[in-house]
Amino acid sequence: MSNENQQLDDAVNKLNIVPGTRHFFWVLFKSTFLISAFTVGGGMVIIPLLKKKYVDEYGWINDKDTLDITAIAQSLPGVMAVNASIMLGYKMAGFMGTLVTILATVLPPLITITIIAFFYDLFAHNYYVQMLLKGMQCGATAVIIDVGLNLVYKLFKKKLLLPILIAAGTFIASLCFNVNPMYCVLVDAIIGLMLLRDPKYN
């Protein structure tokens, strides 16, 4: 497929489902439910997958809002994935959006654990279950790499030194020194408050 066709295809795809319609809520529920059901791992894993769906596939919300919401979700009490889905849902379609996304995020683990609670041993030591989960983990890895690289690319394209330094510093702190993400976020918020108020950083 040529690049032009691809873009047209994207545009059609993105225009197809208008937020707020009944069809939109169904698609939102279905995709959030399935991503929640197939994703093993914490908030920083599920959010790139949701981002891929909402931003890249449907264009319901943009990169900037998604990143803002992720940062806030990380800082609030409770489970990050749930916090993020509440706010993403609200941003896309108001309170109804929130109801749909929170239900779709919480139902899969609720169902899975209820079932597993009865068959724990069978489940935990089954080779095929483990291989299935392992495969899904590799799939999720591919999406996170893609989303991560894409965001890094956009960060560098803006050619602003401070945000790049913040990203690099946070990356090193969390990777090499195992600093709790909460503290990273706190420090970066203060840096932003002091140094990044110029509109060019918005």
């Binding site: 791992g41 914490g42 920083m44 894993v45 959010i47 790139p48 900037k64 990143l67 803002d68 992720t70 940062a71 806030i72 990380q74 996170i144 989303v147 991560g148 965001l151 890094v152 960060l155 945000p163 790049i164 913040i166 990203a167 690099a168 510093g169 946070t170 990356f171 969390s174 990777l175 993400p181 990273c184 976020v185 970066d188 918020a189 203060i190 840096i191 932003g192 408050l193 002091m194 140094l195 990044l196 108020r197 950083y201 918005n202």
Partner: peptide, 17 residues
């Protein structure tokens, strides 16, 4: 400003994950 500082942080945390 605060959010401008947080956005690159989230990019970094996604990369760490």
């Amino acid at each position: 400003g605060t959010l401008n500082g947080l956005r690159p942080a989230v990019v970094a945390l996604i990369c760490t994950a």
